[in-house]
Each structure stands twice: as structure tokens, then as C-alpha cells.
Simulated assay, not measured.
Amino acid sequence: MGSVARSVIVNRSRITGLTRDVVAELVVEIGPLWAAQRHRRLSGRPRQRAVGAGAPYKLVFVDRLLATLVHLRHGVTHDVLACWFGVDRSTITRAISEIRPLLAQRGCAVGQDVRLRTLADVVDHLGSSGQSAIIDATEIRVRRPSQGTNGRDRYVSGKSKQNAVKVLVVTDTQGRLLFGGALKPGSCPDITQARDAGLVELLGHHRDLRILADAGYQGLGAQTGGQVITPPHRKFKKNAPLWWEERFAQQRKAHSSRRIRVEHGIAHIKNWRALTRHLGRRELLYELVPAIAGLASIPRQSPPPVAAG
């Protein structure tokens, strides 16, 4: 790939969704990891030539990283990326498969040297810092399993009536992403997903931690001693007093206003088109989701003001 085209991709944040400084940090951070991974792969089998011998890669590491970022941001097919970078399609596929797990291992950045990779890390961080959090689940559309596959219908979401995979998302009260993962088939209820992820047990170690959630998590409040806060229940099914209806509506609106930030965090994830609708293998989502969550957790910088003149 030419230096001019590479410069265009790096300098225009709309292409990768990241600023030039962030891309430079990723190169410095992931470059040594990729080199070590490559060395282990080459030296892990019998060889007739020394490691590193032979023709150099047509696609250098920087271009491999940029191709992966463009693919995640815009969902560009491997064939199109191969044309852009002037290599074969298999080269792009291999490059993305090498870079994607390295991005997934980064976790969500919440400080200079603080990375949250698991739900346990998130709960420990929130408990030690005295912050609150918001949880919610979002669905990613996937292809239907082939006919004759066991459990073919378990990916059908009861909400969207489509084949989907459910992702648990945790943000702070400002909407900054802290976690994205704990994947479950679309038919799994939100509360079951949180329980299977071990949220109840983790909250037991931090009794002062409070988490806001929607009505899909009603029941966790009693199970966690009030640590998970959900909207109020409707006590009157028929002939409710007018004053109670007004109070009920105000309480639900106040709760919704507090937890709306998690929807903003989910929107930042869905801005990466690779998760708008996943057309590849469902197993790849276990790398795609944490990789994109880590990239989306990077603080977004506003463009510098234009000088008047």
C-alpha cells in the first residue's frame, strides 16, 4: 500500500473511527505483541530455514492494523480491502484473524494504566472507586443456523423475532463503556444472562455498589439486596387512582433518565458496522465484541476549532 493512501486512512478519523494519535498508540502497543505472536508461530514447528528468512510480507504490520480497523468500523468485505491494499483476499483474511484477537485482549480503557477485561474487573473497579454503573443488553443479528443443527431456534429473539446474539453491556453513569461481552443466544432473557455471567456473586463482594437496570432485570434487586435498581412495579392492574398513575409515570421517567446513558454506550458500539449485522461465523463474535468495545471505550476527542479568518 502506498504511503499516500496510508496517510489518508490515518489522518481521517471517519475511515477508522479513531484519531491519528490513537492509531499511533495502537501501533506502539500491538506491534510488539503481533511480532511475538508471529515468532511463536514460526518457531513452534520444525524448520529448514531460520525464522524471518524468505520474502518479506507484502502487507506490513501497520497496513494489517489499518485493514482490521477499516473492516471493523465499516464492515468492508475482505475482497474490497484486498483491492484497496493491493494484496490477495486470503492475505487480508489472515491479517484480520491475527490482529482481531490482539484487539480483543486489550479490554476497555478507563485510565492511563487501567484496563477492564472481564465483568469481575469491572465490579472490582467500580467497588474500589465508589462509582455506580448501568447495565443493559443489546442484540446483534446473525445468520440462522443451518437446517438440522441442534438448537437451531435458540438464536431466535423473542423481542425482535430475528436470529440474534445477545451482548451484555456495562457503562458508568456518564455512558463510558466498561464492558461488552457475556454473549448468549437471542432467546436468553436479560436477567438470565446477567445471572449466568456471575453478576449476583460479584456484587456480593461489594455491598456499596449500585447498578441501574431496566425492567428486564426485575428480580435481581431482591436477589442482590437492592444493589440492582430497576423501575418500580405496577401495583394496580385495573382502576388505578389518578394520583398513583401520575406518581408511577414520574418514577419511571426519572429512572429512565438516569439509565439512558447506557443506550449511548450501546450506540457507540453499533457505530462499528461489523456489529450492526454479523454475517460471518457466530464464534467470531467472542473476539469482535470485546475488540470493538475496547476501541469504542477510547475517549472521543472533538476536532480542533477552526481559526477565524
Rank of each mutant, 00 (worst) to 15 (best):
Leu119Thr: 05
Ala296Gly: 10
Ala137Ser: 15
Ala55Met: 03
Gln301Cys: 11
Leu212Ile: 06
Leu295Thr: 05
Arg195Ser: 09
Cys108Tyr: 07
Glu29Trp: 02
Gly181Trp: 01
Ala133Asn: 03
Val87Asn: 04
Asn271Val: 02
Gln147Trp: 10
Tyr217Val: 02
Asn163Pro: 02
Ser128Glu: 15
Ser157Gly: 09
Ala194Asn: 07
Arg94Cys: 07
Gly180Arg: 02
Arg47Phe: 09
Lys238Tyr: 06
Pro241Ser: 07
Gly158Lys: 07
Ala254Gly: 09
Arg261Lys: 13
Lys235Glu: 02
Ile292Val: 15
Gly221Glu: 14
Pro299Thr: 13
Glu201Gly: 04
Leu183Phe: 09
Pro304Tyr: 06
Thr173Pro: 01
Ala5Pro: 00
Leu102Ile: 14
Asp208Val: 01
Gln131Leu: 13
Asn271Thr: 10
Val228Gly: 03
Arg273Ile: 02
Arg89Ile: 12
Leu72His: 07
Ile92Arg: 01
Tyr57Trp: 12
Val306Cys: 05
Ser90Cys: 11
Gly265Leu: 04
Ala182Val: 02
Ala164Tyr: 00
Met1Asp: 03
Ser160Glu: 14
Ala137Gly: 14
Ile298Pro: 01
Ser297Gly: 11
Leu242Asn: 06
Leu18Met: 12
Gly44Pro: 07
Ser187Phe: 05
Ala35Asp: 12
Ala215Gly: 15
Asp190Phe: 03
Leu177Tyr: 04
Pro145Ile: 00
Val10Met: 11
Leu203Gly: 04
Arg176Cys: 11
Leu183Met: 12
Ser256Glu: 15
Thr224Val: 10
Thr138His: 01
Glu201Ala: 15
Arg195Phe: 08
Arg277Phe: 11
Thr91Ile: 09
Thr19Pro: 00
Arg40His: 12
Val228Phe: 06
Leu209Cys: 08
Ala53Glu: 15
Pro299Glu: 12
Gly111Met: 04
Ile260Asn: 13
